[in-house]
Design a protein around this nucleic acid. Sequence first.
DNA 1: ACTTGAACCTCTAGTAACTAGAGGAATTAC
DNA 2: GTAATTCCTCTAGTTACTAGAGGTTCAAGT
Lengths: 145, 145
Amino acid sequence: MLGTKKMFSIGDLSRRTRVKVPTIRFYEEKGLLPRPDRTAGNQRRYDETALKRLLFIRHCRDLGLPLADVVGLLSLEGASGTDLDRAHEIAEKQLADLRDRISRLQSLETELTRISKACDGKHDHVCAVLHAFGDHSECKGSHSN
Amino acid sequence: MLGTKKMFSIGDLSRRTRVKVPTIRFYEEKGLLPRPDRTAGNQRRYDETALKRLLFIRHCRDLGLPLADVVGLLSLEGASGTDLDRAHEIAEKQLADLRDRISRLQSLETELTRISKACDGKHDHVCAVLHAFGDHSECKGSHSN
DNA sequence: ACTTGAACCTCTAGTAACTAGAGGAATTAC
DNA sequence: GTAATTCCTCTAGTTACTAGAGGTTCAAGT
Ligand SMILES: [Zn+2]
Ligand SMILES: [Zn+2]
Ligand SMILES: [Zn+2]
Ligand SMILES: [Zn+2]
């Protein structure tokens, strides 16, 4: 039993991680996953390490991290001391980003709610919703960018 | 003074709408703006109608509408009767979409807040933040997709 | 009229993070 | 042995722009 690790095909890995097959190849190309061993027929075969790494990536993505930050976190594997502060930075940045996006979407929600309710639905001549889409003067906030 | 409308260069239009010059060309290519008249030297010259149309597009984009929906709204210019219901549909859809995104971002915020606070910052050996990024088992919700 | 500098032109390629499809080879199950 | 499934590479498409190269036109000043 020496050297006989469990090996997975790309499809196995996909099922276990719910990451689609082309996405796994994409991650390899982008350097997030190391190039795996191949069979004699050139098909990829992965081990447990790759599985764990892909699960890590998947979870980070689910948390909304951009791939660049996932790369940053992956590079901290085995790090110690102040190098690990980088993980905190990434988390804080993502959190700040998230809060910013939420508050922006909330002001959009305010505006769209108003716009949606602007029209009585009697479309004799014009639609107040359509008009409101083009008219910023009734908006409360600036909601640009 | 017959036929002498005020005309704008693409730069003028850009300044008045705060839409960048390459973006204006892009909108033209995508059919959101009609091809304008040109000078003898092939430069674009716009009129008030184009200005208004671009302001409309800009505001819709600021409200988060995808270009496809902006196209849909633009096509309602001059429409009447039940055709205008389409504007309501677009508004409702965008609102639903927005609310969905907000609630998703909010659950991400919950998880990231927890993850951020997981580590005491003493990085003797490991970082709990780094660990938490890879571990879904501590998460409250599913937060996938 | 001439010159200069800003603004304009087209075209290509790059961004983020995949996804889809073509055309063909390998693997697995029966 | 053969058929179904999975795999391979490569290209291109998605969204909504943005950046740059290389060249032309316009507007203002002299
Ligand atoms: Zn209406
Ligand atoms: Zn507005
Ligand atoms: Zn830490
Ligand atoms: Zn999780």
